[in-house]
């Protein structure tokens, strides 16, 4: 069962009632005359209605919580669901292989041969550690660059799926040139002539996200966030203290929701999530991502604007 967020308390309470009834039903207790199955049905209908109401009007902080939900589909889930015949490719040919950056070749929805780069945060503790909680190091960005250059040469479009708190802020990452690695990713993305489509599936954490998202088309999931700095970091610097109130204020001021970013033309489209967020129906969420990306790939290929059009897209963002 999906993990509940703090603002989902009404859902959690209803869920608890459902569980209670189920337990009673299973134990065959002396409440047989009650219509337990009917009661469960009614509660579940109510839950759906409550979820719809809750999710219709999320605050930026709540959206941030949903974007970071540990059970949202991850890079590897998307690849498994949407990329047929995926062959993962490893290593940057310079230093190592970054498991936060899943990259390889395959056919998007079984139709469009492409290169895919997807950040994966991992689900189990072991996976999360191996993937560094989805925070790529220079070797991750350099692996992506290698594949993007190959895609360009081979005429394969590029799809990137972005979900990261940010590029890893650590000693080893700095030692190997984290800044240079991101700068070079941007450089490569401003040069490749093949179509590039990006989706911010969860968190778009600053430069570490942009390094994959300097694309022809940038889509965002409805409850994703994309920000220059985390609301916690922003609160600590500009409000001098990160607490519940200042984080809320920062999340609001930063205009990091999909709706805000569409308005400012930072992104090109929003992919609706299932009621209650992508974590409640990963299959449906991923299916929508698959369709949206396929449509954008076709559009960009048809427009055939090459790197020039992509540069124009970003030069136009003021």
């Amino acid at each position: 069962m999906v993990q509940f967020l703090d603002f989902e308390k009404p859902l959690l309470d209803l869920q608890a009632k459902v569980e209670e009834l189920r337990a009673a039903e299973a134990s065959g207790a002396d409440i047989a005359e009650k219509d337990i199955a009917g009661e469960i049905d009614r509660l579940e209908i109510r839950m759906a209605r409550v979820a719809r109401l809750l999710y219709r009007d999320l605050s930026p902080v709540q959206i941030m919580q949903v974007a970071r939900h540990p059970e949202r589909p991850q890079g590897a889930d998307y690849v498994k669901a949407l990329v047929e015949g995926f062959v993962p490719l490893a290593g940057d040919r310079r230093y190592g292989d970054d498991q936060a950056m899943l990259a390889g070749v395959g056919k998007w929805l079984g139709q469009t041969p492409c290169v895919v780069c997807a950040i994966d945060k991992g689900k189990t503790t072991a996976e999360r550690i191996a993937r560094n909680f989805g925070m790529p190091k220079p070797e991750g960005y350099r692996k992506a660059q290698r594949l993007m250059r190959m895609a360009d040469r081979l005429g394969l479009p590029i799809v990137t799926l972005v979900d990261t708190p940010g590029a890893y802020p650590g000693v080893d990452a700095e030692e190997r040139g984290q800044g240079q690695a991101i700068a070079e990713s941007l450089d490569v993305l401003m040069q490749v002539k093949v179509p590039v489509v990006s989706v911010i599936t969860g968190e778009g954490g600053s430069g570490g996200a942009l390094a994959l998202a300097a694309a022809d088309r940038v889509l965002m999931l409805e409850h994703g966030i994309y920000s220059v700095i985390s609301p916690e970091g922003c609160a600590a610097i500009l409000w001098k203290e990160a607490n519940k109130d200042t984080i809320h204020a920062a999340a609001t001021a930063l205009k990091l929701t999909a709706k805000d970013l569409l308005e400012h033309k930072v992104i090109d489209g929003i992919i609706d999530e299932p009621v209650g967020g992508a974590q409640r129906d990963a299959a449906l969420a991923m299916k929508r991502v698959g369709k949206a990306v396929a449509a954008q790939l076709a559009e960009v290929a048809k427009a055939n604007g090459g790197a020039e059009a992509r540069r124009g897209r970003f030069l136009g963002i003021l």
Binding site: G207, L210, Y226, L256, V266, F314
Partner: peptide, 18 residues
């Protein structure tokens, strides 16, 4: 980045690169 300009500040990284 200039935090007060949010993601529009972030976009300058791609803009200048272009």
């Amino acid at each position: 980045a200039r935090m007060q300009e949010g993601t529009l500040s972030l976009m300058q990284m791609a803009r200048t690169t272009a």
